[in-house]
Design a protein around this nucleic acid. Structure first.
Lengths: 258, 258
DNA sequence: CTTGTCCAGTCGTCTAGAGCAGTTGCCCTG
DNA sequence: CAGGGCAACTGCTCTAGACGACTGGACAAG
């Protein structure tokens, strides 16, 4: 019989979140393998001692993340190829609403990343790699911002953002707190209307340093995303390199074809 | 007062879907502007004559799409700007229009199509995962095409393509050689105008089988891409799962003038 | 004027049911 | 033995409540 733990009703964590966590853990540990059928909603309801709607809320969360597939009349199964989609975060949404910068920032900062626990800001000479990406000359300097993002207390992402010093000079971009609307709002204030960005996604093994900071088990790959923002003149204005703990991140884009 | 229409309880469309559609329409038509506050859940409940959970289900759907933001104690608001993943790529759209199907194929199959050295085509029962992605019922069959791509003699990519047998039946899709224009041309000939596709990218370690076929050194991760093509009616018509040895994958986006 | 308290409104979570609609396995029939 | 039909099981939709937590404004006390 599948071991799934219990729900602590005295906890301030909602019961459905606890159930979702228990199921996630069972999948992560391999007790539930890809293709396996989960206990039915009724069985889970009895096991955890909650109402069926509560179980469904947990299952719905995991389905939205792409970990589970429910099939009418058959059961709920662990996905054979687990994927995790982006989920909007209310907290971020609120910040955006207040700042009026919703779409670009939401996308560029990564929707669904709730908190930052480390931050490091300073000007430095740009590496050859960064210079090439930002199309700036040799010996140029950039303002670098390095952060670690947490979700539910677990590190999920390391981000390094670079802005040419020629753009950042004398603005709040040089400060740890970039103010309302974040860094993109400051870049626009500096006269660069954001128009486009490109993303390059790759898979690789983490460095030992990255493994430590992301608390990754040995043998786990990371997903890296390099994003470059361009202004209306096609000038690169910002570069963000992100290292994401895999497979907790997946991109999903839909293109109208015409 | 906001006009939102009614729910037809005799319809076979679920009530919460009808409510979601009504709200989407109100936002699309501008009766609900970005930043506007929606009627409260209680008011919507009374207006549509349904239980509150049903209203919440509709609101949850729109929140997941990024159209709405709920804030505890304040209300539900229309997002200031649409989420980026719904924004068209001009580059892609333009090329599609100019070159017709060739562009869609080049984009979908990967630019700089390499050579294929293994191919395997046949009809088979769809796995739960594939059925879910293609939105087809249990026990459905699909035409599966499994290929290995080579670049300069080195294997770079394993691709598995699935088309519902209901679409492929009696067409060249069932043949190893799909003829000029490839599989997408045959799908269009079958009456499905291709309209959009979605992509999901993830990183993971290869299976031993994949490692062997891609001739990967131990400890090297792969990049996986799942692409689903939809016709003009929003019906999924084809699914491609790709496992790439090549380290990176590029996506480009452009923001609408705003 | 400032501060703190209270309260109505709102969303978040949860319970305890109900009927409906797919899926599957089994039994019965021919 | 093959096929049809039935019944059990599953997830899907929905109802009708309950209480808690958060927000924002009214109002009283300082």
């Amino acid at each position: 019989m599948l071991e799934l733990g219990e729900v602590d009703k005295t906890s301030d964590t909602p019961a459905f979140k606890q159930i979702a966590t228990a199921l996630r853990e069972a999948i992560g540990s391999g007790r539930l393998a890809p293709g396996d059928k989960l206990p039915s909603e009724t069985q889970l309801r009895e096991h955890f001692g909650v109402a069926r709607m509560t179980v469904r809320q947990a299952l719905g969360e995991l389905s939205a993340e792409g970990l589970l597939v429910a099939e009418h009349g058959r059961g709920v199964f662990v996905r054979e190829r687990p994927v995790v989609r982006r989920v909007a975060s209310d907290r971020f949404a609120r910040r955006h609403r207040e700042a009026g910068q919703a779409a670009f920032i939401a996308e560029a900062e990564g929707i669904g990343v709730p908190s930052v626990d480390e931050i490091e800001v300073g000007s430095e000479p740009a590496s050859a790699d960064v210079r090439q990406a930002l199309a700036i000359p040799a010996r140029s300097r950039v303002v670098a911002r390095r952060r670690r993002y947490l979700m539910d207390g677990q590190p999920v992402e390391l981000a390094s953002s670079y802005v040419p010093l020629s753009i950042a000079k004398g603005t709040a971009i040089e400060a740890a707190d970039t103010g309302p609307g974040g860094i993109y709002a400051r870049i626009e204030e500096a006269g660069h209307v954001l128009a486009e960005f490109s993303e390059e996604v790759a898979a690789r093994m983490p460095t030992p340093e990255e493994r430590r900071r992301l608390r990754l088990p040995a043998g786990t790959p990371v997903l890296t995303v390099r994003r470059i923002a361009f202004d209306a003149n096609g000038l690169p204005v910002e570069l963000t390199d992100t290292v994401k703990a895999a497979p907790s991140y997946v991109l999903e884009y839909r293109f109208p074809a015409s």
